[in-house]
Design a binder for these strands. Structure first.
Length: 102
DNA sequence: ATTTTGACACTCT
DNA sequence: CAGAGTGCCAAAA
């Protein structure tokens, strides 16, 4: 068992990430706003980096506001394509079509 | 306690 | 659309 989830902050973020529908993506800023840290999107990314350590979460569905994927996480591209998300030639996601809104 | 770093966002160029 | 600069908050050293 991991007592890591003692971090309420991470718990809320992971809850949201776990609710992201397939074929959709969310920006760190959106999640940050959902948990009440709208000015602190970095914290979201930091937690997601440890997301696999917390458990099994679709962290690959989270991108930055530019539609860019996470560095050091190339598998993310394959996972998104597997869900039907078409990436641009630059590796950017088409947020206009795939951004998840609550 | 202060400084540095981080899977970012926003504005201007 | 991409790059550079600035701002925000929190954890780690």
């Amino acid at each position: 068992m991991s007592d890591v989830l003692n971090d309420e902050l991470a718990y809320q973020i992971l809850e949201i990430v776990n609710e992201i529908p397939e074929g959709k993506v969310v920006t760190y800023g959106q999640i940050a706003g959902m948990i009440g840290r709208k000015n602190n999107s970095r914290l979201v990314g930091k937690v997601l980096s440890k997301a696999e350590y917390y458990g099994d979460y679709p962290c690959h569905r989270v991108v930055n506001h530019n539609g860019r994927l996470a560095p050091g996480f190339e598998m993310q591209e394959a996972l998104l394509k597997s869900e039907g998300v078409i990436l641009k030639d630059n590796g950017h996601v088409d947020l206009k079509k795939y951004q998840w809104n609550i």
